[in-house]
Amino acid sequence: MQILFLGTGAGMPSKQRNTSSMILKLLEERGTYWMFDCGEATQHQILRTTIKPRKLEKIFITHLHGDHIYGLPGLLGSRSFLAGDEQLTIYGPKGVKDWLEVTLSTSQTRLKYPLQIVEIEEGIIFEDEQFIVEARMLEHVIPCYGYRVTQKQLPPELLIEKADALGVPRGPLLRLLKSGEDVILPDGKTVKSSDVTGQPKNGFKVTILGDTRHCENSILLAKDSDILIHEGTFDTGTEELAREYGHSTITDAANVCESAGAKHLIVNHISARFMAEDLKTLLNQVSSYNFPIYIADDFNEFNYINGQLEKLEN
């Protein structure tokens, strides 16, 4: 699983940062992308990446402020011209359906693929055999959600050397053993799945929060997450201003991560007042915490594998 940030700014685009959008790249897991928020000019950002809009499967909207949704109509329209014919599902707060339907109708935008719009409430909003997505209301100035993506337990690894030693032929019997079934070999011998497989592995847990003050639901969503993605619009020392505008400081983000026992923190939604040279100062404000903390820039990509988060070179 990889995470790609398309926009990491707060409120409006700047020369350094576009408005909010990030992608969970699930190519190995399901051959698709999941997008979280779609601020203005998101599709322009995509042009500078290898992302294929036709592979977008789901878009999760945290709230209906323009810096999180104004890129949706253009992206939805362009997807029709880019060989996108599979269903796309959009999840978001009440009002997103009316806004999109009026916008697409008024502009006479005709989509060549099925579009499903789900207006969510708190709880599990999606589940299949691979993933669970839970949403909880945060504390912003308008209704705003955070999302927790949980990958279900992975099947055990097939220990091919043990299977070979027991005489299991290559082919369908190996697949049955890997799936947990015992098999009978042509000579009548029974081979148990547990004899040729390792322990099942836990999937990853990623929490993506929308704009929010420090709140209990942020901690609940982030509980034991492998990765917490949390806004940090303000710096330490401006807590009152952050709360007034329904936002967090970078220290708020770190406190949520610590309280939740999350393993890695990525801070985004950075105010335009902070230039590149200010990022070191921001990180110094949270240098005492005992987990890795990153500040995301546009086009930063992170790879998560074997419990480790790696920031890739742009």
Rank of each mutant, 00 (worst) to 15 (best):
R54M: 10
K280M: 12
I270M: 01
K280D: 15
A163D: 10
Q199C: 02
I295C: 04
S107H: 12
H214P: 00
F234G: 02
Y304T: 06
F274G: 04
L82Y: 12
L158F: 03
I132R: 14
E161G: 09
G188Q: 10
S259V: 03
F302K: 05
E127S: 15
N255Y: 15
M137Q: 14
V141S: 12
I51Q: 08
V96S: 14
L4V: 07
Y147F: 12
K178L: 01
P186S: 12
P93L: 12
H269R: 10
P186E: 11
T106L: 08
S20C: 13
I227E: 01
T19K: 02
G198V: 08
A242D: 03
L185Y: 08
I125T: 11
D98K: 15
E129Y: 15
L228S: 02
K15H: 07
Q43F: 13
E121C: 05
Q116P: 05
H44P: 03
S21Y: 03
G210F: 00
G7L: 06
G180E: 02
D298E: 09
K223G: 00
L241C: 07
Y304N: 06
L228C: 03
I160N: 11
T207D: 03
G180I: 04
F81K: 14
E240C: 09
M22A: 07
F274W: 10
D224P: 00
G7A: 08
E129N: 14
L166D: 09
C38G: 04
K112H: 15
N202A: 05
P73L: 11
T150I: 15
V256F: 05
G9H: 07
F291S: 03
K223A: 02
K189P: 02
G198A: 09
E101R: 13
I295F: 11
E277L: 09
E40H: 08
M22P: 01
G232S: 02
E121M: 05
Q116H: 11
Q308N: 14
I305A: 13
I208R: 00
M35E: 01
S288T: 06
V256E: 07
K25G: 07
A10K: 09
L279N: 00
T42R: 06
L265C: 04
I120T: 09
E121I: 04
S287P: 07
K311W: 01
P73S: 13
L56N: 11
E216C: 04
I208V: 03
K280I: 14
Q87H: 10
L283I: 06
T190A: 00
L100P: 01
S20A: 14
G123Y: 03
R54G: 06
K94Q: 14
D252A: 07
L104V: 09
P172S: 13
K94G: 08
F81C: 09
R136V: 00
G198D: 07
G210W: 01
A262N: 03
L283E: 08
V118D: 15
G31M: 07
N290A: 08
L166E: 09
S21I: 04
M275N: 07
L76M: 11
Q130G: 04
E134V: 11
T103G: 13
L24P: 02
I229D: 00
